[in-house]
């Protein structure tokens, strides 16, 4: 019953780190392009799905970087900040740029980064949380949250201007966006928390939670844009299948997998 594979042995999995800057660059560029593409025509609404996946990737990497400092039960709270800290930025941007709609995502991103910076500085210097990456990560997380909200709005309603935002808030879908977005960003690190957590596996899960959000956004978009929403659902389902399989495969490679069996004996220290 206690095969060699299930003995307690510290086997740290070799870490191949992906640079935070690369992820941030991808997390800004791809969602911005995706949001514009999704609002171009409702047939392209699924492009907003790509934006959702990459915004989630960026946000989840931010949560991972800051929560690595031993924030256990605080992981969900940090993820919630992503959306909570950026809702106001999105609404303000939609008001400020109501004449030049194309500027909304850029202004929303800038405002969200600023609000994240403010939250980060408060956490670092007022609450005295002694985490060096706090300011950078809070800034990144809020930026990702703003892009995620706009990606969802663009995918679901086919536009990201003030009427689009009003549509989602009047119907209550805005809370649906809030909670699936927040869970999408906080779940990857929260679900992989532990001593042998590895960036690659967590990010694969963030791709999977991003794709799951695409399916949900596609379902919600059926009400607003009708049948083209099916393209989003199909795209999301395909992306989810691929990314979820990648995550499961990686977890099985990195964990000790047993079909069934009793609890193995461990050497007591």
């Amino acid at each position: 019953m206690t095969g060699s594979s299930c003995n307690a042995k510290a086997e740290a999995v070799a870490e191949k780190k992906i640079s935070n800057n690369l992820i941030a660059a991808l997390g800004i560029a791809v969602p911005l392009l995706g949001i514009f593409a999704a609002s171009f025509n409702s047939l392209f609404a699924f492009m907003g799905g790509i934006a959702i996946i990459f915004a989630t990737l960026w946000g989840a990497n931010g949560v991972r970087t800051v929560a690595k400092y031993g924030i256990g039960t605080g992981v969900p709270s940090i993820g919630m900040v992503a959306l909570g800290g950026s809702v106001a930025a999105v609404v303000a941007a939609a008001h400020l740029a109501s004449k030049t709609v194309l500027l909304i995502p850029v202004i929303a991103l800038i405002l969200a980064l600023l609000s994240g910076l403010l939250i980060g500085i408060s956490a670092r210097y007022i609450l005295k949380m002694n985490i060096p990456v706090m300011i950078r990560c809070k800034t990144e997380i809020c930026g990702a949250g703003a892009l995620l909200i706009l990606s969802h709005v663009a995918t679901i309603t086919g536009s990201f201007d003030l009427p689009g935002l009003k549509n989602v808030s009047d119907t209550g879908i805005v809370l649906f966006i809030f909670i699936i977005g927040a869970l999408g960003i906080l779940h990857p690190y929260n679900a992989c928390l532990g001593a042998d957590e590895r960036q690659g596996r967590t990010l694969k899960l963030s791709l999977a939670t991003g794709s799951a959000q695409v399916i949900l956004a596609g379902i919600a978009s059926l009400y607003f844009i009708g049948l083209p929403g099916m393209i989003t659902i199909l795209f999301g389902a395909l992306a989810w299948f691929v990314t979820y399989s990648m995550f499961v495969r990686t977890s099985f490679e990195e964990g000790i997998v047993m079909n069934t069996g009793l609890i193995p004996e461990v050497e007591h220290k």
Partner: peptide
């Protein structure tokens, strides 16, 4: 899967 895989050691 994620949490238990992270408890390998």
């Amino acid at each position: 899967m994620g949490r238990i895989a992270s408890q390998r050691r």
